[in-house]
């Protein structure tokens, strides 16, 4: 069974084809991502109308390329999966309208995928999810800790109270005068700093598994304002900032895994590409005796493969969605309805 996945929730136009799921998860046959960083760099951030205008021009070339690279014909497909939110509404509707157009024209089942479950299922590509487990989703727009007991069963244990970690990275980068997109630039600057750095003061939220990144942002703003930072100083400030964010994410993930019964940890989302977070989380998990799984970094940032993977699993467990499927800028992560058993 082949599934086409389409993702247009933010500023990447993406499509992919996967086979399965089988015993080794879904097999990735193709994944095409058209980034818009060049456009939004002019404005220092994502402009929704600009993103939508690029999506409508990229959507069919990207879908066509995904099919071609997978050497798949329309008749080979079994389902079409598409991100239905959360995200920029003008961007979402381009992907959803295209997916529906394909579904009616080819008579294919349509499966709506929540963007966060897309990220979760990036760990089910050429690999399998084990249950129960705790998933850390850390990305540009989200930070969630989710307990999964079974495919499509989500219990949100904690979330950010203010910025998402990727957003925090971007804002920190702006404070340090780094070009857009700031997250990777900040990480690169941080990695250039020699020696150990202490993290900046961080928010403590005792008795909860929530996150907060506004305090560390304020600390960095104060540091940049009060001190004339030379090149090494800026690198050390970036490293301290990155350390704070990575520590918050890693410590909370370990706490959540321990509190839920010493469960394995799966770390997904664009920020899960961050080398420092990977190293810290791996070290702390080893200390605690917990397994930790990271998907390939290429699958962590927004892509169509994760949507196809989530859609393929969801189709098997919960069946197709109706053609009047809606999309929404704000959308809660919900467990799948179970298909009726015979």
């Amino acid at each position: 069974m082949l599934t086409l996945g389409i993702e247009t929730s933010c500023d990447e136009t993406a499509a992919a084809v996967v086979r399965g799921p089988g015993e080794a998860g879904v097999e990735l046959l193709s994944s095409v991502v058209a980034s818009q960083d060049d456009l939004h760099a002019h404005f220092g951030g994502i402009v929704p109308e600009v993103a939508s205008r690029r999506h409508i021009e990229m959507i069919m070339p990207v879908v066509g390329e995904a099919l071609q690279r997978a050497q798949a014909e329309w008749d080979d497909l079994s389902a079409i999966a598409v991100t239905v939110g959360p995200g920029l509404i003008g961007s979402l509707v381009v992907g959803v309208a295209a997916a529906k157009g394909l579904a009616i024209a080819r008579g294919l089942p349509l499966v709506g995928v929540h963007h966060l479950e897309g990220h979760i299922y990036s760990a089910a590509i050429d690999s399998t999810l084990t249950f129960p487990s705790v998933v850390l989703i850390a990305s540009g727009g989200h930070s969630h800790l989710v307990l999964m007991r079974e495919h499509g069963e989500y219990e949100v244990l904690g979330r950010t109270l203010d910025d998402a970690p990727g957003e925090a990275f971007d804002k920190g980068a702006r404070l340090l005068g780094l070009p857009y997109p700031g997250g990777p630039a900040l990480a690169e600057l941080a990695d250039s700093s020699a020696g150990r750095v202490d993290p900046l003061p961080r928010a403590r939220l005792p008795g909860s598994l929530d996150f907060s990144f506004s305090g560390v942002k304020t600390a960095l703003a104060r540091l940049v304002k009060e001190q004339e930072l030379d090149a090494e100083g800026r690198a050390r400030a970036a490293a301290a900032y990155q350390e704070s964010i990575a520590l918050s994410l890693a410590e909370r993930a370990i706490e959540a895994a321990e509190e839920s019964g010493y469960l394995p940890i799966v770390a997904v989302g664009g920020v899960a590409c961050n080398r420092r977070l990977r190293a810290l989380l791996a070290a702390k998990a080893e200390e605690a005796g917990l397994p930790v799984i990271f998907p390939d970094t290429k699958l962590c940032t927004d892509n169509g493969a994760m949507v196809a993977a989530a859609g393929a699993h969801k189709f098997g467990h919960a069946g197709a969605d109706s053609l009047d499927l809606d999309c929404a800028a704000n959308l809660q992560l919900r467990s799948w309805p179970r298909a009726e058993q015979d």
Binding site: I56, V94, A97
Partner: peptide
């Protein structure tokens, strides 16, 4: 864009 994405998808597929 909803109309055009729908039209493109039907035409392409």
């Amino acid at each position: 864009r909803i109309g055009l994405a729908t039209a493109k998808a039907i035409a392409h597929s």
